[in-house]
């Protein structure tokens, strides 16, 4: 597996303008900072896990990277080319290299199309002249690869279970042999027993095809299983970014520590004695985020400086990046 960086995101910001429906028409809309300055690198064949509570901007980040939502500023270098500067047409042709898998497997499949049409759509879009027989062969191959019987091509999405629908979604993402798949909470809508199957399938496919993955979840335990590195996101800001094992064993940011303490440990003895760090309060509004460190309203370690100065996202050794004045 090569070690080249295929994607480099620099200081990506995605803002939304939201208007209070009761406000007067001439008032300026509020700015919601869904993603506020995220940077990372992604190597070929690597998996970057992104975790955070719902509402922390992780889905927006994923969509901002692949321009399903236009970013405010920043750079997304894809194989050396800034995606955010491409014209719509150029971006469209780049899309065959970057695919996406969605949270709700059934909702991401057009109910009026059969499985064959759904899986073949990327071919039809990017290589419309491919002969029918070849398309059929490609669809069948990819179906077998993701564990679906190829004789189901004429069936419709509503005839499948959630796990099968997600396999169809994966097949659609794979058919053009992309270099990166962005997975937006691909398993959180599935049964626990199925979750593992889908994650394992993704892992196998990754090893086999040298895919890079951006894997988003709100559950640290799933991300740990598949990720090379993990990024912890809070209110659109990066809190911590480190190698998977490192982050899990030696979390340095208070927020990450709390998240990890909430993951159940299979051993009842340890589970009983472990210290549970509770985070109190709700996620603050991204329209009006706390000054200084965004986590300070809920941080057990917060001091005065946290309110005045925004902590720098810095390397604390061996590429373990943390944004906290008082990291461990």
């Amino acid at each position: 597996m090569s070690n080249e960086t295929i994607m480099q995101v620099d200081n990506l910001k995605v803002y939304f303008r939201v208007k209070n429906p009761e406000a007067m028409p001439w008032t300026r809309p509020d700015v919601l900072k869904a993603v506020d300055g995220v940077s990372f690198k992604l190597k070929a064949g690597e998996t970057l896990g992104i975790v955070g509570e719902s509402g922390c901007g992780k889905s927006t980040l994923a969509r901002g990277i692949i321009r399903l939502i236009e970013a405010e500023e920043g750079q997304v270098l894809w194989l050396g080319q800034d995606l955010l500067k491409l014209s719509n047409n150029e971006m469209r042709s780049r899309r065959q290299e970057i695919q996406m898998i969605f949270q709700d497997p059934l909702a991401s499949l057009d109910p009026r199309m059969n499985i064959g049409e759904i899986i073949a759509e990327p071919i039809k879009t990017h290589h419309p002249k491919t002969p029918k027989a070849e398309v059929k062969q490609m669809v069948e191959d990819v179906m077998v690869r993701v564990g679906l019987l190829p004789n189901l091509v004429n069936r419709y999405p509503h005839e499948f279970s959630g796990g099968q629908c997600q396999r169809i979604g994966i097949a659609r993402a794979l058919i053009l042999k992309p270099k990166l798949i962005v997975c937006d909470e691909p398993v959180s809508a599935l049964d626990v027993s199925i979750q593992a199957q889908v994650v394992n399938l993704l892992k196998e496919l990754q090893d086999e095809m040298g895919l890079a993955l951006i894997f988003i979840a709100h559950d640290l335990s799933i991300v740990k299983h598949i990720s090379t590195r993990i990024m912890v996101l809070y209110l659109g800001n990066m809190m911590e970014l480190a190698d998977s094992a490192d982050l899990y064993d030696r979390p340095r940011h208070p927020y990450t520590q709390a998240l990890i303490s909430a993951v159940p440990i299979p051993d009842p003895l340890i589970e009983k004695n472990k210290e549970l760090i509770l985070i109190e309060g709700d996620l603050p509004s991204a329209i009006n985020p706390p000054s200084g460190c965004v986590f300070r309203t809920r941080c057990p370690k917060a001091q005065d400086i946290c309110a005045s100065d925004k902590p720098v996202f810095e390397d604390t050794g061996k590429g373990h990046m943390v944004a906290c004045h008082f990291h461990d």
């Binding site: 971006m91 469209r92 899309r95 695919q99 969605f102 009026r112 879009t125």
Partner: peptide
């Protein structure tokens, strides 16, 4: 706002095709 329309956009389908292929039939 359905995910399958987003999926089509992520795949790179043109807007006009999205309307005829995905929105109108639904």
């Amino acid at each position: 706002n359905k995910e399958f329309v987003e999926a089509a956009r992520a795949t790179g389908v043109k807007n006009s095709k999205i309307i005829t292929r995905h929105i109108v039939p639904n």
